[in-house]
Design a protein around this nucleic acid. Structure first.
Lengths: 383, 383
DNA sequence: CTGAAAGCGCTAACAC
DNA sequence: GTGTTAGCGCTTTCAG
């Protein structure tokens, strides 16, 4: 009676379903669906659906009755997955990060960026799904998770994950990636910013500069024999920044010694910094790919008994919150990660809209400015 | 010919589908599905599915041919949504945050917690979906987004969002919430930690202490006439910490003046701190619900020309990374947000497993310890 | 205002 | 090995 009794209107098909369902969910209450409510109230499944999605399509009384029944039976409303299947959209947008998901919560630049994305997305009702670029256990998030569009934020060089996203034909926004005519892209003027940093050192009289960079092939560690050549396959941002450093240094006739840091962390950076600073003659300044690496350089200098900036100048990049937490405070190149996030989120919602409307629409290409911020870690070349 | 030609095996049903599909996706290429590949290769849809999911269920040659065709036609593999529907799981777990999603990227405690969750989830291949507790535009993430389980991390008092999750019957882990026998819960020993903080001040001779707290009803601002009573409807953590403060203070015969801060931010906290410190006689110490509020208190003291800790002591809670960034560094109660995240993620994956197996399994209840960390912001009561 | 039909794209089960 | 049957839970026509 609890199930079969009050459902005279349901066809054999649905009766069959109920039975199957009851068998399928052993030991648990048979799942409540639109049909359950429909059977109970004695209307069609469609009317129940309308009660939830189109209040104006049925009488207020009918709707109230349906909603009450739904509530009594513990029905929470249309199943998100089923709805997503038929509607063709999931209500979530993805952010493709590195294989280390937690990076998005640890790095100051990433959190600023993501906070902006979250702020921008909130009002739209879209949720944010973090995708790691490398899924184990056979599942590849970029291929197997339902999202309506993705912000490709930071991914490894050989980004299989990114390739999957492209193949899936999802609306994409490339953030800090090599611009691709097919997609919207948002980034900062890395090349110019790098030039500013290098020029700053040149202006201070430095003619022998060490460069600490990461973002190259995973295998690479230590001094680069021919930085320009080796950088060819690197991450876009790394290539841009390196090029900016080198162009200015070379034009000024300064000697540049570039070391590649295996992973983007202060620990690894300190190690390379020690190598660079151990040379004779010692470079008078260190130009770093990021503030994170610069923080490592600072530690190395301290360990070696070198005063910053008196013995050696250190310049970072990003103006990570970290930059003002270390001592001395870092001279760096400022980027507005929050603005980048806002722009990226907007570009994606825009892409989502045009994808839905079928309009082709030229993808935007945003390049945010960078700016030199002189603090305490840089000074005139010694001697 | 491109579609109808090489598909003699497909029944009328599928021919019909193709046509409908072609009409549906106006101006865009008809979507490639399992059926498209099946028609092209001349096998059944099921065989194609097996090629992707069960390599051992078909000949290597057949599989290779299918995969090649799929690749040629730009098929990326089974649609995540359709697969989720039929499998009953989406591959993503949710985190319910406040209505301000970005909070998860801004607050030090939240980022530590989430980083741990991300670290723990990575290897499982599950993705992380951030759910805001308040969705506008008619969509309620907690009700409308497909997830397999949720970490209820931080939600407003009247959490409708949380109620939806419960109704949906999703596996849940309550973090920093009032433990509920039906769900696993993870939290810290807030009450004990609060006692430690209060006792520290009592031991230093303070007998007139201001309390800065948040987490009560949104309307409440300013001094609380009867803190214990008013706190009855508050957030669990706030209630616990307040109780700890009060119990110790009262037992020591100290006078306590509690002010409620409208929102959890240093700005609002500074305002209340100014009020408390403007009283005559002035409290000799401030006990704060969090380091964020304590940072506000520090600013207020500075603005009023009061020296910390000489004129007034300030004690925080959480040992937020922020605690050592302010001057003077905060005496606080340390909690291990990362450990909390790890425990929560484990509890959820465990809950997911038992939910799937149908085993009832007693939900865990984890309470992590707290510890007093004495730094520079607390000292002997003046006078 | 309500309902019947037709599928969204896929997979578990079982038959051949 | 491969195909058939029978749906997962829902919404979009389009009739009444």
């Amino acid at each position: 009676m609890p199930d079969a009794g009050p459902a005279p209107a349901s066809g054999g098909r649905y009766a069959g379903r109920s039975a199957a369902s009851a068998v399928a969910t052993i030991a648990s209450v048979a799942r409540v669906t639109l049909q359950t409510i429909a059977d109970e109230v004695g209307v069609s499944r469609m009317t129940v659906s309308n009660a939830f999605n189109r209040p104006d399509q049925l009488s207020a009384a009918m709707r109230a009755k349906i909603l009450a029944t739904a509530d009594r039976l513990g029905y929470t409303g249309p199943d998100p997955t089923a709805r997503a299947l038929v509607r063709g959209s999931s209500g979530a947008i993805g952010v493709l990060l590195t294989d280390d998901l937690a990076y998005g919560f640890r790095d100051g630049v990433a959190t600023d960026f993501l906070a902006a994305v979250a702020d921008e997305l909130g009002p739209t009702g879209l949720s944010l799904t973090l995708l790691s670029s490398e899924g184990r256990d056979g599942v590849v998030p970029a291929r197997d998770v339902a999202v309506d569009g993705v912000l490709v934020f930071s991914c490894s060089l050989d980004s299989t994950a990114r390739d999957w996203l492209v193949k899936r034909g999802l609306p994409l926004v490339l953030v800090d990636q090599e611009p691709d005519p097919g997609f919207a892209s948002v980034g900062i003027d890395d090349y110019h910013g790098a030039r500013l940093a290098a020029q700053h050192l040149v202006d201070l009289g430095h003619r022998h500069v060490g460069i600490l960079i990461s973002g190259g092939s995973p295998g690479t560690v230590g001094r680069l024999a021919d930085p320009r050549r080796e950088a060819e396959g690197w991450k876009y941002v790394s290539r841009q920044r390196l090029a900016g450093f080198l162009d200015v240094l070379e034009a000024a006739g300064a000697e540049a010694v570039a070391h590649h840091v295996a992973e983007h962390g202060d620990h690894a950076a300190a190690e390379q910094a020690r190598e660079i600073l151990g040379a004779n003659p010692r470079p008078t300044a260190l130009l770093c790919y990021s503030d994170v690496l610069a923080a490592g350089a600072l530690r190395a200098a301290e360990d070696m008994g070198l005063a910053v900036p008196d013995d050696v100048s250190v310049v970072g990049f990003d103006d990570n919150p970290l930059a003002t937490r270390v001592r001395p405070e870092l001279t760096t190149v400022r980027q507005d990660a929050y603005a980048k996030g806002t722009a990226a989120a907007r570009a994606l919602t825009e892409a989502l809209r045009t994808a839905q409307d079928g309009e082709p629409a030229e993808p935007v290409e945003v390049v945010l400015p960078t700016e030199l911020v002189v603090r305490e870690s840089s000074g005139p070349a010694p001697g």
